[in-house]
Design a protein around this nucleic acid. Sequence first.
RNA 1: GGCGUCGUAGCUCAGUUGGUAGAGCAGAGGACUGAAAAUCCUUGUGUCACUGGUUCAAUUCCAGUCGAUGCCA
Length: 311
Amino acid sequence: MTISSSNFADKKTLIILTGPTGVGKTEYAIELAKRLKTEIISCDSRQFYKEMSIGTAAPSQKQLSQVKHHFIQHKSIVDYYNISMFEKDVFELLNTLFAKHSKVIMTGGSGLYIDIICNGIAQLPDADLELRTKLKNEYSNNGLAYIQNLLQKLDFEYFETVDLSNPNRILRALEVCMQTGTKYSEIRKFEALKRPFAIEKICLTREKSIIDQRINARTDNMIKDGLIDEAKSLYSFKGLQALNTVGYKELFSYFDENCSLNEAIEKIKTNTRRYAKRQLTWFRKDEKYVWVDIENLSSEEFLHKLINRIK
RNA sequence: GGCGUCGUAGCUCAGUUGGUAGAGCAGAGGACUGAAAAUCCUUGUGUCACUGGUUCAAUUCCAGUCGAUGCCA
């Protein structure tokens, strides 16, 4: 393992500890935070929500009591929250944290959220949710070709580069064009920002077959720990984006009698594996990541290697 | 034991009026900047159960064997 950073020591550093779901980020981040006597920022887009605890594998009360965590269950599923708000929240917090600590840890598996913190984000107005709903309805009433045509008229440049089969991309572009009166392709341009601190990117990993085993076991444990009741209590909110989440949507389908409980559980495992795969695709693309296979590395050995670099 | 149905990709199954076969799911790879645990794209050669027979040619027709399943005894 090589973690290279010329100015790592004595410098404000954000240590990003990511990896596919189920790899063991939470435990390793806590061990590292204890050793560095610092705090943890979560960048997990589903652990933000206080109502979703079991199904998102949020850190336990015991884990939370060991190290101060931020952005874990700080929002409600009924709140609107997005990457821009997250970026703002994180930077406000980092001002405080870097005043006390030279190293701060950020852990979680939401690749886009990590990238926003590292590179910044274009200046756009906040989403107009009424307009979003209206556009969504137009899409479901008139189909994909209709919104494609609309985009062709409003922003030809983006039309030519966007993935035209992806309705979400098209809808977002239309939303911005209509809301601002400016082309999305124009307004979204931005230069990657230089952050006033160093960033170290570490991706924890294990063999895929082992990740799969861990995902299966974790899912079974979630069921034992009461995921079904948790999902039941959130059933009436199933239309919310926060609940378009692995572990919940499959159980909602079971509650709706579209499948058996066993089928739902298998589907959770499958969808979690697929999520882990998409995460790995995301992380592979960013060559700044140092990959650490932790399968045969005790947390002590892991820390030892990491800390040697940091000191 | 008798009669019938079935045995095709990891799974569920199509199909070939005889010219060696294709969907869905899974798996694999990829995209991604205010929905991101979301959303989307690409990707299917397998002794067509086995052994014989008929035929220029059999996964397809015929016989037998094995396995599954149903009905009758």
